[in-house]
Design a protein around this nucleic acid. Structure first.
Lengths: 223, 223
DNA sequence: TAGTGGTCTAGACCACGGT
DNA sequence: CCGTGGTCTAGACCACTAA
């Protein structure tokens, strides 16, 4: 059997393809939190031998999506309330730092871009386009986080966020109105180049998002 | 050839052994930042075949110690001034959050343990035992960071810290006196269960440590 | 168009857990 | 003490690079 011959995507290895597909399968709920991931099963599922599967699992462990125990096997990361809370606290800490450090580097062009995205975001909210609004919201925060040019910090919050983000899609949000308000406050602080105010608003914003998601998970669990 | 037969350490796989040895070799300077890591070389060096080496490299990439490019190979992570600065900013953000969240959970026993470690620390400093003082300093901060019980946050700051820590050993510190003072201030805030004061002191403490290390790297580079 | 070196497969090895 | 399934080895395969 040839290895990567058939329809070989350019500059893409087998393990990276498996990793991306497996990540997608986990985040879309094909493999739910806690389930065992048997290498042989995955091997037949993705049509490759065992080693590329293992490499993919190693990498997904690095992303926090998978638990991997020597001689024991792999399982999808459990996400409980505490995990969600801990992750949001990490995000809060880092985003607050990033906005505080980033404000001095913000150009007028950056600011105008933010205003533009916020307008599109509010329109998407108005029209009830949940998918688009989540995407625009992500762009909004990504631009702000990027101002400080701290690649390590960006990697930390990008890396372990997949599972949380899938929960946000699943449970939605009950505070879109409030989010819009937070964004406007933040834009106002940014316009004034007020780093401390922007940091305080960001901190508050993330904590409210955390409390909202956890509340929704709780009620869903009871329902 | 048997695989893990000779002197098989209990419950330890080949890749984990290679990973630990390779990490040690990187942090101790056997493989310096930027150097290429050839799988075949490592394969002969550690006396195993190529796959365990690759798995070890995948994991070390997850720890940020190694860069890994598909079809290109691996290299030891470059550490420049910006990397050090970025990592310290991440640490500052997370430790500040941890101490703020942790203070309400601190028991009297925790506090007494901290006082005890600080006494040992100051004595080690007095005696000029650098290795011991670094170790005690680590214990001190680990206890404080652990109060909030945020495993994810702990993982983030533990994970990518190896390279920075090796720099601290290499370049030392010019502010041991100042560190002792910071610790005492911090203990005082903790005694009063003043989370905000403790957070402010922590933030300041980490930033000073960053500036000190970077200054030392700079002067060493010029010297 | 070699040569170098990363990647994949197949099968053997063996740790662990249930019988 | 056997079955299941994770792990390792050897060698083949092939992507990239330098002439």
């Amino acid at each position: 059997m040839m290895q990567t011959s058939s329809e070989s995507s350019f500059n893409e290895t087998t393990y990276s393809r498996v990793r991306d597909k497996l990540r997608e399968d986990i985040l879309s709920g094909v493999f739910k939190p806690g389930v065992r991931l048997r290498i042989i099963d995955l091997s037949t599922r993705y049509g490759v031998s065992q080693m590329p599967i293992r490499e993919a699992l190693q990498q997904l462990q690095g992303e926090g999506l998978v638990n991997l125990l020597p001689q024991k096997g792999a399982s999808v990361r459990e996400v409980d309330e505490k995990f969600v809370s801990d992750m949001y606290d990490v995000r809060m800490a880092i985003e607050t730092m990033l906005v505080r450090n980033g404000v001095p580097y913000m150009s007028d062009h950056d600011y105008m871009k933010l205003v533009e995205i916020e307008e599109q975001y509010e329109q998407a909210v108005e029209e009830g386009d949940v998918s688009l609004s989540l995407k625009l919201n992500e762009s909004f925060h990504k631009i702000i986080n990027g101002l400080a040019q701290n690649d390590e910090a960006m990697r930390v919050i990008d890396r372990h966020w997949g599972l949380i983000d899938s929960l946000r899609h699943k449970y939605g949000s009950s505070r879109v109105k409030d989010v819009v308000n937070d964004h406007r406050l933040l834009l106002h602080a940014l316009k004034n180049r007020d780093a401390e105010a922007a940091a305080a608003i960001t901190s508050d914003h993330v904590i409210k998002a955390k409390d909202d998601l956890i509340a929704r998970i709780k009620t869903a669990g009871k329902g």
